[in-house]
Nucleic acid binder design. Structure first.
Length: 461
RNA sequence: UCCUCUGUAGCUCAGUCGGUAGAGCAGUUGGCUGUUAACCAAUUGGUCGCAGGUUCGAGUCCUGCCGGGGGAGCCA
């Protein structure tokens, strides 16, 4: 019978012969006696295994029982004589699945930098930090589905490959099967008629437009999938491949959209505290002393809500020296977001009603004609974590907005038809999953909260 | 893409004024029967990112290239 270390560590008192499998994290050795710390990924905590000469093959295997070695151990599970753990396994038999030559295995029983661990991304899940990150990603993923499922949202699988060469966000990766022998015209233009799809194809930068299709039929939907941006961004907050959550709600205005986003963030963070406390405590003690407090602060107070115009007035009144002096019409810069969330309000801030010129074509124009019903949620230390809006639901206004944005309305024929036939007010938002994980773990670099990071100039593993 | 810092042992780093390479950890060997980042003693280990240049002499100064960090822009 297979037994997880997580379950074993929850036991009390003698529980007899127990069998366990895992990887050795560290060994402490003295003459004729050794203590192994065994981890199997089920929890951040290790099981202490006591090995001594009562083990038949003690002298044969003791030199192999090093950091990284995978074993099966059988023995008596008893209350620990030592002080660092409640129970321990007194080994009677140990079988080695595979040893990890100690002069070659890159993971040492010491602290490594995250930059070094990134170079061994195939082994870093075996560290405390990355094991905890992966379990937290799992818990947060589940919490996200749970939140939406409990509220009747349908999980919709929007396409990864798209023919829209402009989805309104960022540079796109092209998808082609012509790369080996492209047919190039005299003018140097690649002919895509013979390409796989008979036209240019790209990786999606957002499932929103397709999401709106299904919201305008099934009311409340959400997507949760991979997203691709070919921007040459070189920061600790950007990836070329990341996971995004995009709910879309019919019969929903900007206010209900804000309420949903705020409730969503509070729900998932509360769920994480309730279900991944062991892992969060690790981050709280080793990565950032305020991890638990930072997460709790999200669901313990209401988010501030201000308009873009109010935000600009606050920034101007602050008399603070900004690199980009605030004035109506410019986008909020990083330094402005930091000031609002970290100094002025000291909690998440929802900013609404941005100038139409700096926001996407699909956002609903307010009655003032100057602003759109956009809403961004700004988090302390992270900046923008959610971007959303009420969508323009009037055919004519949307058509004009597409045109004035320099886009070709013909390419958006099906998107426009949602407004032609049975249009409804609808809203939605997008949220970067890895940024959420950054926030709850305190990890500084987004490349360290995803299994295998993909970013400009970097594609290993 | 821009600004800035940085690259020295397996890992984390020090290296003064330009004078010929150092520590901790890990490894190895020895000691220790209850350790908790185990401890004690000894010890191995170097293409100083790469390519040029200045110099009697370059880890150190100069130029170019490559990698990494931080910040900015773009954005989620």
């Amino acid at each position: 019978m297979r037994t997880d270390i997580k379950e074993i560590l929850s036991r009390e008192g003698d529980s007899g012969i127990t069998e366990v499998e895992g990887w050795i994290r560290t060994k402490r050795e003295s003459k004729g006696l050794a203590f192994l710390e065994l981890n199997d990924g089920s929890t951040i905590k290790n099981l202490q295994i006591v090995v001594n000469e009562s083990l038949k093959n003690f002298h044969e295997i003791i030199h192999h029982l090093n950091n990284g070695c995978s074993i099966k151990a059988k023995g008596n599970l008893v209350p620990s004589m030592g002080s660092g753990q409640s129970v321990e396994l007194q080994a009677l038999e140990i079988e080695i699945y595979g040893d990890a030559p100690v002069d070659e295995y890159p993971l040492q029983k010491k602290r490594h930098t995250f930059e070094f661990l990134r170079e061994i991304s195939h082994l870093r899940p075996r560290t405390n930090t990355f094991g905890a990150i992966m379990r937290i990603r799992n818990t947060m993923s589940f919490a996200i589905h749970k939140f939406f499922q409990e509220r009747g949202f349908l999980y919709v699988h929007t396409p990864i490959i798209t023919g829209n060469d402009c989805e309104g966000a960022g540079e796109m990766f092209q998808v082609t099967t012509l790369s080996d022998k492209p047919q190039i015209s005299d003018e140097g233009i690649i002919n895509h008629e013979n390409d796989f799809f008979g036209k240019k194809a790209f990786l999606t930068v957002s499932g929103q437009l397709e999401g709106e299709v299904f919201a305008c039929a099934l009311k409340n939907i959400y997507t949760f999938g991979p997203t691709f941006r070919a921007e040459n961004s070189n920061t600790s907050r950007h990836l070329a491949e990341f996971w995004m959550i995009e709910p879309e709600m019919a019969f929903c205005d900007i206010r209900l959209n804000m309420d949903t986003a705020e409730e969503f963030l509070k729900y998932t963070m509360k769920y994480l505290i309730d279900n991944s406390l062991d892992d969060l405590e690790f981050f709280n003690s080793r990565i950032d002393k305020n991890t638990l407090g930072r997460i709790s602060s999200i669901f313990e107070s209401d988010f501030a809500r201000i308009t873009y115009t109010e935000a600009m007035n606050i920034l101007k009144k602050s008399k603070k020296e900004f690199e980009y002096p605030p004035h109506w019409g410019i986008d909020l810069q990083s330094e402005h977001e930091k000031f609002l969330a970290e100094e002025e309000f000291k909690k998440p801030v929802i900013v609404t009603d941005y100038p139409r010129e700096i926001k996407a074509f699909y956002m609903k124009i307010n009655d003032d004609g100057k602003t759109v019903r956009a809403m961004d949620i700004i988090f302390p230390r992270l900046g923008e974590i959610v971007g959303g809006s009420e969508r323009e639901s009037d055919y004519k206004k949307l058509f004009d907005r597409i045109s004035e944005s320099g886009l070709n309305p013909e390419l958006y024929w099906w998107y426009l038809e949602l407004r032609k036939y049975g249009t409804v007010p609808h809203s939605g938002f997008g949220l970067g999953f890895e940024r959420l994980i950054q926030f709850v773990t305190g990890m500084q670099n987004i490349r360290d909260v995803i299994p295998f990071p993909r970013c400009a100039g970097y594609l290993e593993f």
